[in-house]
């Protein structure tokens, strides 16, 4: 990936990230966050992690941000905008970020491994194919792609996920089930008689 694209997508990611914090309207913040995640997905693709990039777009920029926008419009929290910032939080936050950035610069400066170029660590499907055949793992579809000199990212992720990480996958499935049940329990109205007095959720009033 040319350097220009790296800088472009980094700028998109960081610029819209700053807008998330800076903008006063929650809807603008949410849309900026979606753009920031799109930039991040492009960086994933630049690292050869195609599957993770697609998942980032589908799950984060798609599902999660739509959920955020839905909740923001459901709650209709426009009235929150008029408050002024409290000064201790601004000073404390800026100081914290400054210290963090300084620490980051120091750590990265003394990290010789980090000075390797992306071109200096090339991926070699031939080596991978030889290693797979030596280890006795035969998966015709993956091996064909590797022999053709391609990187079958999704197939390799699937293979890893369903062999070495199958137990983790099941745990994650249970976690999602528990989260789904939990969400239903939490968001259920406790008192059915109090329901008519709820002024909740008119249609979103902003354009």
């Amino acid at each position: 990936m040319p350097s220009v694209l790296f800088y472009l997508f980094s700028a998109i990611m960081l610029g819209f990230g700053i807008l998330v914090v800076a903008l006063r309207n929650p809807v603008s913040s949410a849309l900026s966050l979606a753009m920031s995640f799109l930039g991040l997905a492009a960086l994933f693709v630049s690292l050869g992690a195609f599957f993770i990039g697609v998942i980032q777009v589908l799950v984060y920029a798609g599902a999660v941000m739509v959920l955020f926008l839905f909740i923001i419009m459901l709650l209709d929290i426009q009235a929150e905008q008029r408050r002024k910032l409290n000064l201790p939080a601004v000073i404390g936050g800026s100081f914290l970020v400054l210290v963090f950035a300084l620490q980051l610069a120091t750590v990265l400066g003394s990290f010789p491994e980090g000075h390797r170029l992306l071109n200096a660590v090339p991926l070699s499907p031939e080596t991978a194919l030889a290693a797979r055949q030596a280890a006795g793992t035969v998966h015709a579809s993956i091996d064909q792609d590797l022999a053709a000199g391609k990187l079958p990212d999704v197939k390799l992720i699937g293979e890893t996920l369903f062999t070495r990480y199958h137990f983790h996958l099941q745990i994650i499935g249970v976690l999602l089930l528990v989260a789904t049940v939990g969400v239903i329990v939490i968001s259920r109205r406790e008192d059915k008689t109090a329901a008519p007095s709820e002024p909740a959720a008119p249609a979103p009033s902003q354009p």
Partner: peptide, 18 residues
């Protein structure tokens, strides 16, 4: 050209913004 440090720096900056 892009190094590992560039990616780590961008990642750290995004974390700092968050």
């Amino acid at each position: 050209m892009i190094t590992l440090n560039d990616y780590l720096l961008v990642s750290g900056l995004l974390f700092a913004i968050g």
